[in-house]
Amino acid sequence: MLDAEFFRRWLAAVAASVDREADRLTELDSAIGDADHGSNLRRGFTAVVAVLEKEPPATPGAVLMLAGRQLVSTVGGASGPLYGTLLRRTGKALGDDAEVTPGQLAEALRAGVAAVAQLGGAKAGDKTMLDALEPAVAALGDTTESFAAAREAADRGASATVPLQARKGRASYLGERSIGHQDPGATSSALLLAALAETADAAEGTA
């Protein structure tokens, strides 16, 4: 079972990983975007960790909803409402349970990813975060072992954005010139899934 503490550790792991990879994300974003993805996400997830420490919510759903709201209000770029919607909608789908199963999380994340697709109007193959998120949530199952499969699926999805032409966001203005670069949003989405798998591994190790 996954409790609120597990979700706080997951988001702290995302924050650490975004902090580590911020320069790389910004570099990817400077090729086809406006060169702020790393710094925007670093600011957002740093604020998420701070608010979760200050007022730790009691349930997994509440942790994700508070984190999502914080991202919408602190990121300042399109990744704020997109990741904010992902976390808020996932948290909402988890409801008020004090502990959730990996299967419940998988189901909730699928709802979260669907909400992101609806908000941005993008679909798989448009060279966006969905190219990592959709295969990842499809790989999630009823066990924490499936988190590793989701991580791999997200990584593969992010790498597979390189030959794609961007159809959404600022990168889409570049047309064919967006081909040959890995999408920054798909790359940061893969970090989110990697942090989930790491957090589950760490929890197994201490159990």
Partner: peptide, 14 residues
């Protein structure tokens, strides 16, 4: 454009 559209939509969805 971009984040301005998405931020308002996300705020309305909330």
């Amino acid at each position: 454009l971009g984040s301005a559209v998405l931020t308002v939509k996300a705020l309305l969805a909330e």
